[in-house]
Amino acid sequence: MKSYWWKFLGAAIVAYTVIAGLLGEVPALPILHESIRNVYFHVPMWFAMLLMYLISVVYSIKYLGSGKPEDDFIAVESVNVGLIFCLFGLLSGMLWANITWGDPWPNDPKLNSSAIASLMYLAYVVLRNALDEEQKRGKISAIYNVFAFPIMIVLLFILPRLTDSLHPGNGGNPGFSGYDMTGSMKWVFRPAALGWMLIGCWIMTLRYRIRKLEYHTDEQSN
């Protein structure tokens, strides 16, 4: 029997953030208005994506040491789930940007960097599909992943801070934590990030278990 408690904990936390996120107090800010509540739903997508990519790189390093196919499976399924969260982050961000910045894709360094980072991880999936031999595919994609992760961190968290960005907390802009995010907002935002991370892990383990089953049935038929 697998333990389910953390899966339901994640679900309960996100359910709480839906209630508290829509009904709770938010500061009345110009331009943003009620759309400030998107912080509870748009930003956690990126947090969940980051955790998925982090798990992926950890298991890629583990795979390089152990050579166990299971480690490789966790690495690839983490990227697969991370890409879904990335897609949701981009789509929700584009909608929000269109309303508050007047353009779905303003030439913002954070947006352009996130696009490059997304393409980098899509390339990881393409690279895997291009290689047929199991061990070669595992090793090459693990090494690629080890390089991709620090580049993604630089693209998303370092480069946008060196220039001006529309995103809060980057460049000349003040962070939400500065004065936009009030105390009560933190108690919705932080659980939201944690809740989506747990749900991301849940979906990743489901995909990993399916992949392992597929691997076993392939072995038996050979």
Partner: peptide
Amino acid sequence: LIIFIGFIIYLFTIDRRI
């Protein structure tokens, strides 16, 4: 909440099937 909880239950049934 209905949509979200529905999806969670669905995810749970997939988990059990696996």
